[in-house]
Write a protein that binds this DNA or RNA. Structure first.
Lengths: 355, 355
DNA sequence: TTGTAGGCGTTATCAC
DNA sequence: GTGATAACGCCTACAA
């Protein structure tokens, strides 16, 4: 590509060596020491402008790209951050990943991704694999992990952020919301609207502990009002089917629900579609409420009342807390009582037609 | 965590060094040379079982995690693969990323992600950033790149896979489908159903060249049948709004479309929702067709006829071709005429109610 | 089958 | 402000 490159860099690739121009090649061409090149690339202010220009020319002439692997080894802290999410492609976590990745990319960090599929064991494997890359920080989802994972994280000595959940007085950095509060929020909304036989439908995915927290909040509100909590766990594995199954069970028995809170919008959508076939009038006969505000939720007929989690904000906050912990940016945000920064985000109840 | 660890590994972290146990610590504890440990970790069959067991014990006792950064530097080919996609969180690319990431993770590779937002410049930046990690391979989206990107890729000397597109006689490895054929597929379907005034609505995102290929296929079919091609480019930036705008323009003028192909399901969904408010009977008065088969497309009323791209298959195929090129797995798949393997995947037309 | 020597490309340290 | 030197932790090459 560049003719000048061929003069100073041996063409072809040997068994060893990347074949690319190194910092030494740049230093030689610029007539300076390689450490000066390194300094110029990091803090150009520490190098005289005369040398700086010669170095800049050499970099361009050789098409030099710094080897970050070597840099990571030398400095013992590479610019890599590992992130474990339950899944990459779901409507929930994708915006978090997007925001997290973009924010860290902007600061010169690379994000490594792994999916746990709600399995603590897979999460632990992913964390172990990440540790091999000497990451600058790690991100996991939720606050429930295996003993092994907790040991690995504690021993790692690097900033760890837990996303998509929030519990007070927890030592790790968190970026999320309190799921129990969200359950309370949903149940209050329905109770205030006059519904009395309110059921909660769980996720068919076993490892989704956050949904259980929401259920607890829901149960607390019902107890508060002297109402019976009523939880249903569908058997069908596919979410749409599970939603249909739940609706059938909860509306066909002797006791009939007049409102149902679902663990997520997929379940709620399954129920909503089934309601049309079953001739159930939503919300008059039975109100339906989801969680997640998936992209389709506003498009359904009737549109789905649901709760919108701060997916993008979680990703951004997690990235910002990491950059702060690494000294890349100045800390920011409201203080909490114990001197930390507030990491509690809020969920928004999106009132539509179904409840 | 492990008591034995504290005996041989100095506690605390110095300026230099990760603070973790190294291969030398393991070797010392096991009473062997460090190279033997390295060999055992890679090909345990090349080490006698006696030493192997001692090494395994030492690894466990020290909680040793190999430093992949150092390994990557020494061997000049780290187990990292870079992937550039237009965006991470969209319904289209997320399943590709998921499948790609999971497949490569299973083989001990880590995927680095970057989003280009359909900008060639951002794509080039991402490729340049990836190159610093000495990746084993790179994946990009589509076959249209900046000169700079092409130069970087060509000079990299590593396997490069282009996803989400396919053109015959192209030298790079591809994993995708032919967008032009998809446009033909859609237009044929509508022509065969008797529609005659068929319009095509473009994406408001400027860099989405694949949609233009589909439009060309559509135009070819119409020309074939002596019909006028009719392309509309919405001004509204948000896809739902753009879809509504397109429907209004194409059905309110003197010439009225009897069928519309949209560049993606978001646009089509916007039009579908608008059709209800406008009192347009879909598909009798105007048929609507999308592309992408997003999760909501089957839930709309009327449900959206669309084309489902092989999103997961693209990710898997890309991963497999990379693993093949790196000698990690055996090549597989049908041969093409020129001795290569067939990388052309198919799209499925999903016939629903809207067309 | 096992070990020794040296290098991978960069940065921390210390001296000028 | 600039540079020489020695790590960083592992792997390739070669020798025993």
């Amino acid at each position: 590509m560049t003719d000048t490159a061929d003069d100073s860099v041996p063409a072809g690739r040997k068994r060893r060596g990347s074949g690319r121009a190194t910092i030494h090649d740049v230093a030689r061409l610029a007539g300076v020491g390689s450490i000066t090149v390194s300094r110029y690339l990091k803090h150009s202010s520490q190098v005289s402008s005369a040398l700086g220009e010669r170095i800049a020319h050499a970099v361009k002439a050789l098409n030099y790209v710094p080897n970050l692997v070597a840099g990571g080894l030398a400095s013992a802290r590479g610019r890599i951050v590992g992130m474990v999410v339950p899944n990459i492609s779901g409507p929930i976590f994708a915006p978090t990943i997007q925001a997290f990745n973009d924010t860290l990319n902007r600061h010169g960090f690379q994000v490594l991704l792994a999916s746990s599929y709600f399995s603590k064991e897979q999460e632990e494997n992913a964390v172990r694999a990440f540790l091999g890359w000497s990451p600058a920080a790690l991100v996991v989802t939720g606050r429930f992990h295996s003993k092994g994972t907790e040991a690995l994280l504690a021993a790692s000595g690097i900033p760890v952020v837990e996303t998509w959940d929030y519990a007070p007085r927890r030592k790790t950095i968190q970026a999320g919301y309190a799921n129990r509060e969200v359950g309370i929020q949903a149940a209050r909304y329905l109770v205030d609207k006059g519904y009395r036989r309110i059921a909660f439908v769980q996720n068919s995915v076993a490892g989704d502990f956050s949904a259980l927290d929401r259920r607890d909040g829901y149960a607390a509100v019902l107890a508060e009002h002297g109402l019976d909590a009523w939880t249903y766990a569908p058997a069908a594995p596919a979410p749409f089917d599970a939603g249909r199954e739940a609706l059938e069970t909860l509306t066909r028995g002797r006791r009939k629900a007049d409102a149902i809170i679902f663990a997520n919008d997929n379940l709620a959508a399954g129920a909503l579609l089934a309601s049309q076939r079953m001739g159930i009038d939503v919300p008059r006969q039975c109100a339906l409420m989801g969680f997640g505000d998936y992209p389709f939720s506003g498009l359904l007929l009737p549109s789905l009342t649901t709760i919108r989690p701060p997916a993008r904000a979680i990703g951004e906050l997690a990235a910002r807390r990491i950059l702060e912990a690494l000294g890349e940016i100045e800390p920011e945000g409201a203080f909490t009582g114990d001197g930390g920064r507030l990491n509690l985000l809020g969920c928004e109840l999106v009132e539509r037609e179904s409840a």
